[in-house]
Write a protein that binds this DNA or RNA. Structure first.
Lengths: 341, 341
DNA sequence: CTGTTAGCGCTTTCAC
DNA sequence: GTGAAAGCGCTAACAG
């Protein structure tokens, strides 16, 4: 075949011929089997390079009945937090020779189902999924019906069913409350988003539990819109009330930074007049004015743990399900407890 | 259902048997061929549902010699900017029935090469790549050698070779300079990162060209470390010099927000005492104190365009290569030109 | 150690 | 309209 534009794809067959061995032997060389002599191996490898051979995983997968790919279903691939999660997942997968198929449910549960279906068609060996808002246990039973191993991350659809890896939201919020109390704050508000999924619920519960422990009332709970940061809902009226809050724990740093912006523009200095604590430790938290005290969660760690748990689950499908909580810390800066700017 | 762990995987064969037709006919039904009668189609579809059939794309791919997957090689999947890009890419791919295989070069050119190799093994039909720092034209020739269609995004390794889609960095910087000049600023600094890749270079060139057009000197170019925002390098000495800058254009909003934090902590009010312009329009830019004027690039648009261009390139491999610049705008807020807080 | 053989699940001529 | 047969490129028994 004279190589005009469409030369025949080089496959194991051609490599084997070039090296003067059989396809089977060449295949063994590929997978670094010790069964093949150094001499033969060398010849085969030389042939591979000479011909520019590229291993066809698709064909191998078809034969071996597994693909070395794993589906990752996130509900908001645009968020930095999720990207960090991906980094952790990717880290483990790279070591295990696995590629992630990333899909986005965009918080839409029909789309989530469609995407999972698509991943199945692609033959993924497992699933890491952050359930879209509105998912319930039928999600898990749908997945289980197909026999595909899976791990939930960041959110779960039930407090007990299925494997789950996530940050210790409640513990983090608890740290924040204790810190505020230690610094003399007594009227603590919670700008907590809406408890539409397990993560938000756990934060809220952590908040309420911590307040109870410190014998404080938890009546300053403000739902916030995470997409429209300029809207602090009923915070306005709280601030104007008879006993306004002197501190706030925010759903995340985005909310906290916005709140600080708002306070500044009203002439109040966060950290002195009003304590603010965020969550996530965005890069900006370290350089804002004032710098932001924040609950540090470890999304990369969550990703790593989820990936590892899934790999375990794939090799050990019958083991009983697990809940992994990755603990966080408090990064103390100027907005609460740190030296004032 | 007592599914005894290892029931035979249901394939097209079983569906065909169940429906009382041949494999070939069943296959036609799958792909919605008009060649099959409504009656038969109905029977086959019923059989598929009954058996819980899942299409095996791997097998189909092997046969058709294409996979319906595309490799996306990014150099920093953790950055929000890249996540936005992914959203645009994903949007187009979902419509085209394509799945993205996402890999991370982590700005490491060996890893980049390894990952590309891996993607090839998975049989991707094309590549969207943001070249890691240090990549040169050999990257393109390596890819071209394999005959795989590709599109560069956000950065390119040569001003002419290969397809490229990116924001109009130079144009954006130009907008910013004109805006500053319009507001009476004359000593404009550029906190521009290091020009280690095409994006940074284009921003810098845009800056210099714009200053020339306004007959200003462009001697206030400060390389900044994008990972360590608290370090503004020689900015310190600039500010202390005989003719200090009265404005700064920053590499991105992260740098700009840090700079504003710094200014505030030194008692200067950004927007009044010193104008600051960022780039990217992060959510925080709208809620910081003061709010941040910023060059709005459109990463989602870049992603969409890159994905579409790649799809074109796949169907039309011989067409000559293209450069697409996605234009941006200036979002005017308090830190320059907007009403003072 | 190496070769032979028989598929993995699907698509695609080409007959009928 | 539908079916029969021939692979896509690889791996896994099993022989030698």
């Amino acid at each position: 075949m004279s190589t005009g534009g469409s030369q025949k794809r080089v496959n194991l067959q051609s490599v084997a011929e070039e090296a003067g061995v059989s396809r089977a032997t060449a295949s063994l060389v590929l997978r670094e089997s010790p069964l093949v002599s150094a001499e033969t191996r060398k010849r085969v490898i030389a042939a591979m390079h000479k011909l520019g051979y590229i291993y066809n995983r698709g064909a191998a997968n078809l034969r071996r009945q597994r693909t070395g790919t794993i589906g990752v279903v996130l509900c908001n691939i645009g968020s930095p937090f999720y990207s960090k999660l991906l980094i952790g997942i990717d880290e483990v997968f790279v070591d295990a020779g696995i590629v992630a198929l990333l899909v986005n449910s965009a918080e839409n549960i029909e789309r989530q189902m469609r995407q999972i279906w698509r991943l199945r068609e692609h033959g993924v060996d497992g699933l890491i999924i952050c359930p879209a808002v509105g998912s319930d246990e039928t999600l898990l039973s749908e997945i289980e019906k197909t026999g595909l191993p899976y791990v939930q991350v960041l959110r779960h659809v039930s407090p007990t069913a299925g494997d789950y890896v996530g940050p210790d939201y409640a513990g983090g919020t608890d740290l924040a409350v204790s810190h505020l109390v230690r610094h003399g704050r007594r009227k603590i508000a919670f700008l907590g988003g809406n408890p539409v999924h397990s993560a938000a619920c756990e934060r809220l519960e952590g908040f309420q539990r911590a307040l109870r422990r410190h014998c404080l009332e938890s009546d300053l709970i403000v739902p916030t819109d995470l997409d429209n940061l300029s809207d602090f809902g009923s915070l306005e009226s709280l601030m104007a009330s008879a006993s306004p809050p002197d501190a706030a724990i925010c759903y995340n740093d985005m909310v906290a930074l916005s709140l600080m912006g708002r306070l500044l523009s009203e002439g109040e200095l966060p950290g002195r007049d009003f304590a603010v604590i965020g969550a996530d430790n965005l890069p900006q938290a370290a350089t804002s004015f004032p710098t932001l005290t924040t609950i540090v969660t470890d999304p990369v760690g969550v990703g790593r743990n989820a990936a590892r748990l899934l790999l375990d689950r794939i090799t050990e499908p019958r083991a009983s399900s697990m809940r992994v909580l990755v603990s966080g810390q408090l990064m103390v800066r100027e907005s609460c407890g740190g030296p004032l700017p």
